[in-house]
Amino acid sequence: MLRIPCPYCGVRDQDEFRYGGEAPIIRPADPDKASDKEWADYLFYRENTKGAHLERWLHTYGCKQWFLIERDTLTHAITQVRLMDGVSGDG
């Protein structure tokens, strides 16, 4: 069980959170003009980093806020916690 430091509520058990996948995932700037390949990249293709991994979490049973953490996917150590900044977390 991870112990996740919510930037709003403090450290809580992982049970209270929902995992939101890797970040950043940037939506195509002009959706009407995006090609099939650009849509596939945005929707499906991932870095899937082994090591320091920036990811989104939602504090479902707390403040209900999205935020970003950097976590090592091999050791599960959490090295950074950030608020959503509108860029690296897709808004």
Binding site: Q14, R18, K50, H53, T73, H76
Partner: peptide
């Protein structure tokens, strides 16, 4: 549910 290469579950 989360990304991991650790070969252990929680």
């Amino acid at each position: 549910t989360y990304a991991s290469f650790a070969q252990r579950g929680s």
